[in-house]
Amino acid sequence: MPTFTRKHPPKSLSTIHITALDGLVHVNSIFTLAVFIGLSWNPNDPTNSLIEDPTCLPTSSSSIAENIVTFHVYSFASFLFSSLVAMGLKQAIRISAHYESYRAFVNTTVLRIGMVVSAVGSACGCVFLMLALVNVVQFKLGKLGCDGGQSLGAVIPLVSLVPVGLLVYVGFVFYAFTR
């Protein structure tokens, strides 16, 4: 009977965690860029609107503009919080590995809780970014349900696909948390 040998040793648990945390930080960076692009848009620019029917203008455009900025700031804070927690966990793993002869000893309970807290921060950031985009659509295309449904047609994929993606993400986080 032939014996099989591995060419490479299996990845250590800490390397897998660092890779997962790196991915989380990279995704948060991309979303943070989207937040800054959203904040750079000036909702008070009258030439920046695509609304043709004056009855579809938002009744309180100042409150919608305030919501846009507010949700972008909440989103930015959530992504920044999530990234800082993930980077702190990475540093803890690396420091522990340095002092333990490159074999990391990390309290798995703290690591799991930190990863869940970071994932919750990312999920909250996504929800706030989605809410900001709903307000941007209302500002650009008109009130929801007005003008032949253009704004509603733009919002429906957003509010259906983002939560599905978040459910998949939270499902994988929960799966990783229980392993």
Score class of each variant (00 low, 15 high):
164 V>E: 07
164 V>F: 08
150 Q>L: 14
140 K>E: 10
138 Q>T: 09
100 E>A: 14
23 G>T: 04
175 Y>V: 06
24 L>P: 00
8 H>G: 05
38 G>E: 03
72 H>E: 04
113 I>M: 12
62 S>K: 10
134 V>M: 02
66 E>A: 11
95 I>H: 15
45 D>S: 05
139 F>R: 04
98 H>W: 15
61 S>K: 06
167 L>Y: 07
32 T>H: 11
28 N>A: 04
123 A>M: 06
145 G>A: 01
126 C>H: 12
179 R>N: 12
1 M>N: 08
176 A>Q: 14
33 L>C: 10
60 S>L: 06
44 N>G: 02
123 A>Q: 01
163 P>G: 01
7 K>Y: 00
136 V>W: 10
6 R>K: 14
107 N>A: 08
104 A>D: 04
133 L>D: 03
122 S>T: 14
149 G>M: 02
28 N>F: 00
84 L>P: 04
52 E>P: 09
169 Y>K: 02
90 K>C: 12
115 M>F: 14
21 L>F: 07
133 L>T: 13
2 P>D: 14
23 G>P: 00
74 Y>G: 03
78 S>D: 06
148 G>C: 12
78 S>N: 01
63 S>C: 03
53 D>N: 14
59 T>I: 15
17 H>Y: 12
107 N>C: 09
112 R>K: 15
130 M>W: 09
150 Q>D: 14
96 S>D: 04
41 W>L: 00
44 N>H: 12
62 S>H: 14
77 A>E: 12
3 T>N: 14
105 F>S: 13
130 M>D: 05
135 N>I: 00
177 F>W: 04
63 S>H: 05
162 V>F: 02
31 F>D: 08
168 V>F: 12
84 L>F: 09
164 V>S: 04
41 W>K: 08
134 V>L: 07
141 L>G: 04
16 I>A: 10
89 L>T: 10
36 F>N: 06
6 R>Y: 02
124 C>H: 11
168 V>H: 03
148 G>A: 01
44 N>D: 12
106 V>M: 13
54 P>N: 11
90 K>N: 13
103 R>K: 13
6 R>P: 02
137 V>F: 12
177 F>K: 10
60 S>P: 02
11 K>C: 05
42 N>M: 01
62 S>A: 12
129 L>A: 05
14 S>D: 15
37 I>L: 08
35 V>E: 03
79 F>D: 01
153 G>S: 01
47 T>V: 13
170 V>F: 10
4 F>A: 06
84 L>S: 13
151 S>G: 00
56 C>G: 13
156 I>P: 00
28 N>Y: 01
79 F>E: 08
157 P>A: 08
30 I>Y: 11
10 P>Y: 05
150 Q>P: 05
48 N>Y: 06
5 T>L: 14
128 F>C: 10
141 L>P: 06
43 P>A: 00
18 I>R: 10
66 E>G: 07
67 N>A: 13
53 D>M: 01
133 L>G: 02
148 G>V: 02
17 H>L: 13
171 G>I: 00
105 F>G: 14
149 G>W: 04
152 L>V: 05
104 A>H: 04
118 S>D: 01
12 S>C: 03
4 F>D: 07
109 T>E: 15
68 I>Y: 06
